[in-house]
Design a binder for these strands. Structure first.
Lengths: 202, 202
DNA sequence: TTCGAAATATGATACACATCATATTGTCGT
DNA sequence: ACGACAATATGATGTGTATCATATTTCGAA
């Protein structure tokens, strides 16, 4: 006796994917308490009741949304860097991350910069996923260095961590100062990092 | 005919001060939507109804809380640095900001790192106050440089902005990775900045 | 074409929220 | 002591929240 298969086999996973990706954008744009479960489901074309067939709780959804946006943003940045020669990729990542385009579009940008502080004060899956996103970014930056420089060392780890901190902080500052000064903040931070890197390489 | 003076002349301002300072701690600890007007008033020993005798709206309170905590943290850090010789103050500020103590106590720490992203997506007084807090921090860092280095220049402005970005980003990362890796993040970021500064000074 | 279960919808619960209208308290000048 | 009024309290409104129990739809398999 067979079990009936009442829906296309990937229907539920497709629906879940749609919920997660629209929630990921909404959370980054409005913050986590700024987006209700009802909002998320409406945006996905569903009603609120179906939510708990897909997720254990809102925190569970937040966790999935952070995972999604964390991977997605790294992938998007990486694609643009493929065209560059290996020696320029690290600097290219910094420039792309600290770009006016990125500052102007948090809804498709790095979730660590938009949701980091508010997720950091919670406990649960979402916070663990945030930490994973940070490790992912450190390894991503390492992968953009020319091969001979990828070997782990204390100095290299410091450089990666400091650079990531500066990227995230710079983006946050740019968004916080308001549109008039935003570009100047990004420029200053980029120049600071370029100079720091030139010094490091000697 | 005189107007009666039914309360001690500074009673209301004292009460307001108490509301603001306890709200400032609560917002940094729990986030802005995480703290209700009722919570704030209860913590100050009052009931919710009195709130609108002191503030126009919750955003008005948030604005006051950011102003308060922005000034307070700079003052506290500054006091600890007075004991140092002028040439060590800038580095001392970085070490204090990127310390495990600061990372462990957001409720008395820098409001830009705790509330920056969530306030940056709002419009109103609170966002403007946040921007002011950032300018305040840049000038504070400049004031910690030895006198001859305080003169404004493009390179100096870049250094101040990049350093601030790195401090804020490093603190956010330390809180985001969780307690086990937090100290290592802080250490790496401090070493990165020390090295960048050594390079700059040549 | 009908059955059954998976996917989604409806409806309800219990609580929290910002805000404001109105009542009460507390104390200073007289 | 008392009157006046600022400071605070009580109470209410309308809306929004996460979560869950139950009903309805949907569509592949028989």
């Amino acid at each position: 006796m067979r079990i009936a298969m009442p829906w296309p086999k990937d229907h539920k996973s497709k629906t879940r994917e749609k919920i997660v990706s629209s929630a990921a954008a909404a959370f980054r744009a409005e913050g986590i308490p700024g987006v209700s479960v009802d909002d998320v489901m409406s945006n996905a074309g569903l009603t609120h009741g179906a939510f708990y067939a897909h997720f254990d709780s809102k925190d569970d959804l937040v966790s999935a949304a952070i995972d999604h946006s964390s991977a997605e943003t790294v992938a998007r940045f990486s694609k643009a860097l493929d065209a560059l020669p290996p020696g320029d990729r690290f600097a290219g990542a910094i420039d792309a991350y600290l770009s006016p385009l990125h500052a102007a579009h948090p809804e498709v940008g790095c979730p660590v910069a938009t949701l980091g502080p508010e997720v950091a004060r919670t406990e649960g899956k979402a916070h663990r996923e945030l930490a994973r996103g940070i490790r992912r970014r450190l390894e991503w930056l390492r992968s953009l260095l020319p091969k001979p420089l990828q070997r782990r060392s204390k100095a290299r780890d410091d450089e990666l961590m400091g650079t990531l901190a500066c990227m995230i902080g710079g983006l946050i500052l740019a968004r916080a100062v308001g549109p008039d000064e935003s570009d100047a903040v990004l420029e200053s931070t980029r120049r600071f990092l370029a100079r720091a890197r030139a010094a490091q390489d000697r």
